[in-house]
Amino acid sequence: MSVAVAAPGARTPTDWSGVILKVYVALFLGFMFLPILLMAGAAFNANPTPSALDWRGFTTDWFTGRTDEAGRVIVRGLPQETRFLQGLKHSILIALGVIAISVPLGLAGALLLTRIGSKATGPLYTALVSPLLTPGIVLGVSTMIFWRDAFGVQAGLFTAMLAQSCFIASYCMLMFMARLQRQDRSLEEAALDLGASGFFAFRRVTLPYLTPTIVAASAIAFLQSNENYNTTFFAIGSSWTLVTEIGARMRFGVSPTINAIGVIFILLTVVFAALWAFSLRKKTA
């Protein structure tokens, strides 16, 4: 507690902790990006075992595939990997379903929780966010069991969609709640007071206010759905998505086509991030 240290002029010499922190951040960024760069690199290596080191020449065959004149496949690239393509189709189908289910559910939950000023909100809130705190494996298993035991529905795309919606709806709900809590309640009251029906007030005042969140929640739902493995693996039964297929391939025979998919994902991410940044800049300008 020496006050002398604080006196002006007595500058602390070198801020070692600051230097250490900087070095750490640099190392950390390497830790974050190195694996991804390696993975991307291997997508262009002719080596059939994914590797960025054992270089056997540049190729884009893993993206395009290669066939000889007779149409026989020489290199199995993405066009030949029909299970990946089919899986992608399943993934998108599920993701669209998840958006259609979880956005309305999340919105309904958020409206209920922010609009009833009753004591029941505590337990209800806990119940509705609990899927976020539940291991994905449990969500997948329980959904698979329930739909088979109760309705005889075999695990498949439908159950995978429901299992994902269960927790993705919670994400959506939290986003909607954050937005609704910032809304001036008197806007809705004003609409009612001016003779609007509850439905009209909701459609004309609240819904436009929520539009940006609906878009954001849909995007998050889409990403979460496509990314999910642990829940989907159990709930999807004998069908598959792009992600579970990548998982299967990682267990039973890797091929640089996985790296090719990774590169495509990276490109999509960069493009979307750039578009997003651009739209933000435009808005502020």
Binding site: M32, F33, L34, P35, I36, L38, M39, A42, P50, S51, A52, L223, N226, E227, N228, Y229, V243, I246, G247, M250, V254, I258, N259, I261, G262, F265, I266, T269, F272, A273
Partner: peptide
């Protein structure tokens, strides 16, 4: 950014290392 990638691709990248 690494999280916009897939969970499995993140894992896969590490198995390569």
């Amino acid at each position: 950014i690494p999280y916009a990638l897939n969970e499995l691709l993140r894992i896969f990248a590490w198995t390569m290392i």
